[in-house]
Design a protein around this nucleic acid. Sequence first.
DNA 1: CTGTTAGCGCATTCAT
DNA 2: ATGAATGCGCTAACAG
Lengths: 339, 339
Amino acid sequence: MAKETKVTIQDIAREAQVSPSTVSRVLSGNAPVVAAKREAVLTAIEALDYRPNVFAQSLASGQSLTIGVLTQRFGNPFYDGILSGILQALEPTPYSPIFGDGRWQTAVEKRALQTLLDRQVDGLIVVGGLSPEAEMLAYAQQVPLIVAAREIPGMSSQCLTIDNKKAAYEATRYLLEMGHQHIAHVTASIYYHGPITDVYQRYQGYVQALTEAGIQPDPQLLAEGDLSQQSGLMAVEKLVGRERPFTAIFAANDQMAVGVRLGLYRRGLRVPEDVSLIGFDDDHNTAYLTPPLTTVRQPAIELGQAAAEALIDLINGRQHTFDTFQASLIIRESVARRR
Amino acid sequence: MAKETKVTIQDIAREAQVSPSTVSRVLSGNAPVVAAKREAVLTAIEALDYRPNVFAQSLASGQSLTIGVLTQRFGNPFYDGILSGILQALEPTPYSPIFGDGRWQTAVEKRALQTLLDRQVDGLIVVGGLSPEAEMLAYAQQVPLIVAAREIPGMSSQCLTIDNKKAAYEATRYLLEMGHQHIAHVTASIYYHGPITDVYQRYQGYVQALTEAGIQPDPQLLAEGDLSQQSGLMAVEKLVGRERPFTAIFAANDQMAVGVRLGLYRRGLRVPEDVSLIGFDDDHNTAYLTPPLTTVRQPAIELGQAAAEALIDLINGRQHTFDTFQASLIIRESVARRR
DNA sequence: CTGTTAGCGCATTCAT
DNA sequence: ATGAATGCGCTAACAG
């Protein structure tokens, strides 16, 4: 339907008085071309407003110059940040990203992945994702693959992750240092979230900090939500209902922290006077909480950039190493020294 | 690098004892094929796990079976909703979306658009966007084009929009009906936002409602922000500073409404006891405001779906008509009857 | 209904 | 350094 440019490499060749191959050469820069001819070609390209046909290019070369990015539905600040980072890092390269959306459903994710593969992407970045490890390993066999924000055993050298356990450990430590002894944790069902082990790692960090401090983690101070704000609210109800005293709550993400905040408010508990509160994600949407929420910032953009760079190195067979990314505790007024 | 499938249509042809063209025919369904052969082909495809080379397909057919979607940086709930709608509507079609990100910068947008065009998209959906009208018209010449959430004079039959003026009118009417006479409006600079006339339309709806009610809009009750939360806060300062009494504020978007809320709080003004407040967008991130914010919900997903459907009809030369979408007022507790 | 013949637009050999 | 020739994998006439 679309009336695409009809200008082909042949037209340029004629216009510039050279052969098509020469045009191709100046285009790709893969072979030396005398300056005069190069000029002629460039001018012709300009004059005719020539745009190479990417399909023909890819068909002939076997490269698509695209890299596939599999995400899970937009909207999450952390994942969105990773996307931004990827986009930024790809900008100066010849590769352009094409997206697939897994929508947090394995079946959808699988199809999206397949679509990307069918489009002959030269490389693949999977952000999070639910696909079983075996499948991921299989994909990695077919195409250069980098996984962001998820650790897959057996391909850790291609996984960029954030040290969630350590971050959670530090958050909990901070509460301990502020004198809190009875620290509740709002987590999310491991079962439900399957491979999203981030949440579980946060739980582990929490446990470790307590244990090191000589405090036995109390199951009664653990509440399970589903990462939603609503579930945070309900978590408070559960905790309060158990009649185990607590002076601080560490929520596994900001959304739940907001719910917690609301739940405390409804129970007449004030933050931070009665209960200190820490979240996780540095979700900017919580900016208008009063008092502002102490939380953990994950370097999403940086991680995205690193993922893209790693992938390009991988495609080009270059060596590439990277460390686990460190998250940082953002201290704000939702935590007070225990009275 | 990637070891793509080496299976070609020839292999299938051989395996199924037919000619390549026949295979192509069963693949595209564009021509009748005897059942027996079709079966044979299908089995062969299955057996060899054949995946057509999209580049070869596109090169030969001139169609890419992709539709380009130009967005502006993820994160905005309204635009994200439109994207979801587009994705959903495209799901059952043979077209797959490829995204471009304009990042709210004309230069970037232009490049992104060009990239999409270079990829020979069969159609284009531009969500919002800043490109001057002339350019949009030019693009529309090159490729089937649908514009979502923006009205472009001269191609209104290809623009899906939401009736912002009417929605704002109704929001203001509601305040009037609640007995408010002095209603302030927080808008955004028309100059700054250039083509984003939504905000201006909201202003117009506000004016119309007042005028119809026999109230002369008071310039002193108008404050200009930039859609950010921060600017909402400052708007309150301006309004309060002018010492013109008001009992209600209608903000042009939820983000500013949140800022307004904060500003009022700092001034010791309570919502809704002292001042009633209405926003616009039904931004879920405001869910934890107390009291909940009365706002306007725009049917983003529906609009996205409609846009995708319209585009496909356009590509196929089918006729397609649609109405302006209606937003709806979501009444919550941030508005009180005037005491 | 189906096989045969030509390209689609370009990147790459290969000679020169 | 550069032109000519070949083919990437597939679809689209064109005959039959």
